[in-house]
Amino acid sequence: MSTNDALIHARGLTKRFGGLTAVDGIDFDVSKGEAFGFLGPNGAGKSSTMRMIGCVSPVGGGTLRVLGLDPAADGPAIRGRLGVVPQLDNLDNELTVRENVIIYGRYFGLARRDLRQRADELLEFVQLSERANDPVEPLSGGMKRRLTIARSLVNDPDVLLLDEPTTGLDPQARHVVWDRLFRLKQQGVTLVLTTHYMDEAEQLCDRLVVMDHGKIAEEGSPAGLIQRLSTREVVELRFPGDAPVVESSAFNGRVARVEVLPDRVLLYTDDGDALAPIAHELLGAQSVLVRRSTLEDVFLRLTGRTLVD
């Protein structure tokens, strides 16, 4: 992909805070209409990357082009064409739901008259029309998140940046947010999101990079990554105390790889149902579960750690 058709183009992108390298020379491109994800644990450098893309944090090294422009030179112009849902909410609690959208639109120089209509449309889209005239403060976490999304769309952005859009929400609220983001994706809005939820990444991302310690470990589609870096199925054995140490050689070639976690042993295999009884007998686990591989397994393979502890 050349620089020209990429909406976001990064080469050797770096960010340092004092002695700490938060983003360590990463390369990626995001093209139009794509849903692109940064999957990584706490402190991986996801927000630091997003803030550089959002042109609110100066690039510490390497090249970054957003919408073909240089953030250092054209920050305000680029920001005018981005939508941002930050990790930490910054709604105006003392204003009503509708006023939040309108006043945010004013930052972009949009006319008040147009904004009234636009706010109603956006609130309809995020299913907050009934709360339009209520203050923000008593809204639930999921509603606030949806309002932040509505607000970020006020300028009809070319790219929507979402930093952990559903962190801290209960499962039901997350599904409502996912549903809305999925709808945006269908409408052709380019999404860039960070998450440490593998299911979120699987649901929403066409393509993602796995990030750890400021570096990109792998890149691909969720299915492609799983296929390339994990087996089809996983036999998951739980133990009441410490899990035993096991080697894959113990299973006569049925097991491609073994991961031993504090309370679990994961056996990577292409035929879980065949392996499960054998493994159960051999290791005497408290419970045995056969499941498909997920991005969690990919992450474990790449970093030796789980995503969410």
Partner: peptide
Amino acid sequence: WTRTYYAMLASPLR
């Protein structure tokens, strides 16, 4: 606390 300035900074405002 309210982080209002950050909301402003995400727009073309400097």
